[in-house]
């Protein structure tokens, strides 16, 4: 096998001799490129990335707190609207109660008046009826007296007697009165 000429004693035939980590020939190279890498990452982070991310985070928390405040505001408005609605409802209910109360009072008054009038008419009617009944009764008594006199005269004549009108009248009157 051709031995490739190596610039370092750390590699023999393409294989590592001992730990490559301890090969001093490579330290300077690694340290140099590491510093370049770190500086590159540091500048990318501090110039671009960190300001950007912290701005985004700040903006986000600002937006969130704004939204929360807006939500709080809307909630307050909703509560106010609810209160207004409840008040309007209570007012309307009171108004309705008042109106129905008035209507009831008016109806009651009308009803009382109608009843009173009806009572009056009934009283008038019944008084008139009583009067008529009294007249009828009086008429009836007179008729009974008349009929009784006639019947009495007829009975007396049928018995063959002579009917004295005056005596019969007196007797019937006495009998009717005796009742």
């Amino acid at each position: 096998m051709a031995d490739p000429v190596s610039a370092t004693a750390c590699v023999l035939d393409g294989n590592a001799v001992g730990m490559p980590q301890l090969c001093g020939d490579w330290f300077a190279n690694q340290i140099f490129w590491l510093l370049v890498t770190l500086v590159a990452i540091y500048f990318v982070l501090s110039r671009i990335v960190l300001p950007r991310i912290s701005a985004v985070l700040a903006e986000r928390s600002g937006t969130i707190s704004n939204d929360l405040a807006a939500a709080e505001d809307l909630k307050r408005q909703a509560v106010e609207a609810e209160e207004t609605y409840q008040k309007a409802l209570a007012d309307a209910r009171a108004e309705a109660q008042r109106i129905s109360g008035e209507a009831r009072a008016a109806i009651n008054a009308d009803l009382e008046a109608a009843i009173a009038k009806a009572d009056e008419q009934i009283a008038a009617k019944s008084a008139e009826s009583e009067k008529q009944i009294a007249e009828i009764r009086a008429g009836a008594v007179a008729s009974v007296t008349e009929v009784a006199k006639d019947v009495a005269v007829d009975i007396v004549q049928a018995m063959g007697g002579k009917a004295d009108q005056t005596a019969v009248d007196a007797a019937v009157a006495a009998r009717v009165k005796g009742n």
Binding site: P4, V5, S6, A7, T8, C10, V11, G14, N15, A16, G18, M19, P20, Q21, C23, D25, W26, A28, N29, Q30, I31, F32, W33
Partner: peptide, 28 residues
């Protein structure tokens, strides 16, 4: 050769080329 993977070599050029502090290597 478990340690061969840790060998530093120039990225361009031959495997045996010297590694100076500024050489662009596999580590770079």
């Amino acid at each position: 050769h478990p340690m061969d993977q840790f060998i530093i070599k120039p990225l361009f050029g031959d495997a045996g080329d010297p590694v100076y502090w500024h050489t662009i290597t596999n580590s770079t």
